[in-house]
């Protein structure tokens, strides 16, 4: 395996980590105004992800940095091409980040209510847009011979991509509800369980519709065949079984299963486009792939050494931070946010 492939896998892993982790804090963010009946309850919900959301978001920053370092043309084409969508996503991410930190720093109920809704909207926008973006990467977009996106904004809003957006939205909501079910106590936890049960059906319907649509809209038949293999099938099965785990009061396992769905779906998309990184809908010769988009072998080597040393360290201390704060949070806990 050459270093280009290694970096393709590494970036896939970073996105998997990002969607798995920030997926649940997007979900929790969106659920705040709906599951928290009063101020204390809302604070409990926010505090359940309070320790983690910022560390989760660094997965995205690292993925972006890794794309820039390993595949500069991918970084340049993607972010200049999806420009207005990315602006909206950044606005969402900025607002929700600030909302976490500011919402409980003033006692005024209006202040808190506004920030709760901003947190919800700021989580909603990226949760939707990530699905749109990933789907467009999979489907292919108009890219010319200079590796430049020429499709305009509305080209990104095709029905398949929008279906992808709504699908990630519901899966993140479900993932977030399960996290709350797992991480809180009493009424909030019970309410989160009910929400998860209700969210499951639309989530799986959308997910199945998305998979079906992908057979018509993408190259999946060519690259993976009618039977796409173990990874995508596991993604579907995990989502399917999560329902029974929710019912049987196994929120931890259910959460892991929706996490598997998120992770394996992301892997599936990366496997399906490999060795391309951006597919041109205009001419296959204009695809960006892991070679024509890549940095020099020297840079890839340097970056590999750095990643080899530091990624395990990062993983170790992030897992440690989750371990330190493994206790469930209730209305009686000391709340910071």
């Amino acid at each position: 395996m050459d270093l280009n492939t290694v970096w393709f896998i590494l970036i896939a892993v970073l996105f998997v980590g990002y969607f798995f982790l920030e997926g649940f804090d997007f979900g929790v963010g969106m659920l705040v105004p709906f599951l928290g009946k009063n101020d204390t309850e809302r604070r409990v919900i926010i505090n359940s992800v309070g320790t983690f959301w910022d560390g989760n978001e660094v997965w995205l920053i690292t993925a972006g940095g890794a794309m820039f370092a390993a595949f500069p043309n991918w970084y340049a084409t993607l972010f200049s091409g999806f420009y207005p969508a990315l602006v909206l996503m950044l606005v969402g991410l900025i607002i929700r980040g600030v909302a976490f930190e500011f919402r409980s720093k003033d006692k005024s109920p209006q202040w808190r209510n506004i920030w709760d809704w901003l947190l919800a909207v700021g989580s909603f926008v990226p949760a939707l847009l990530w699905g749109v973006a990933m789907t467009n990467i999979w489907r292919g977009v108009p890219i010319n011979e200079d590796m430049t996106y020429v499709g305009g904004f509305f080209n990104l809003l095709n029905p398949f991509a929008l279906l992808g957006g709504v699908t990630t939205l519901f899966i993140f909501l479900l993932h977030g509800a399960l996290f709350l079910n797992l991480k809180t106590e009493g009424e909030i936890s019970a309410r989160a369980k009910v929400a998860a049960q209700r969210l499951w059906l639309p989530a799986i319907i959308l997910f199945l519709a998305y998979i079906l649509a992908s057979y018509f809209q993408t190259n999946i038949l060519l690259t993976m065949g009618i039977n796409p293999g173990v990874i995508p099938i596991f993604a579907v099965m995990a989502l399917f079984f999560s329902y029974f785990l929710i019912k049987k009061n196994r929120p931890g396992w259910a959460f892991i299963f929706t996490g598997i769905t998120i992770a394996f779906t992301t892997f599936t998309i990366f496997i399906a486009i490999f060795p391309n990184v951006m597919i041109s809908s205009l001419n296959p010769e204009w695809n960006l792939n892991i070679y024509n988009a890549a940095s020099s072998p020297y840079t890839l080597k340097i970056m590999s050494i750095v990643a080899l040393i530091f990624l395990p360290i990062v993983l170790a201390y992030q897992i440690w931070s989750y371990y330190i704060f493994k206790k469930r949070i209730s209305t009686k806990s000391k709340l910071e946010y």
Binding site: G50, T51, F52, D54, G55, E57, V58, I61, T62, G64, G65, A66, M67, F68, A69, A70, P72, N73, Y75, A76, S295, S296, T299, I302, M303, V306, A307, F310, L311, V314, Y317, Q318, S321, I324, F325
Partner: peptide
């Protein structure tokens, strides 16, 4: 400049941003 400029940016995220944000939460 991606071949050169991207590397310190990625290293910044991996070495510094993870460290400060994870431990600030803690």
């Amino acid at each position: 400049v991606g071949d050169i400029f991207g590397a310190p940016l990625a290293i910044e995220a991996l070495l510094a941003f993870f460290l400060e944000s994870t431990f600030l939460g803690v």
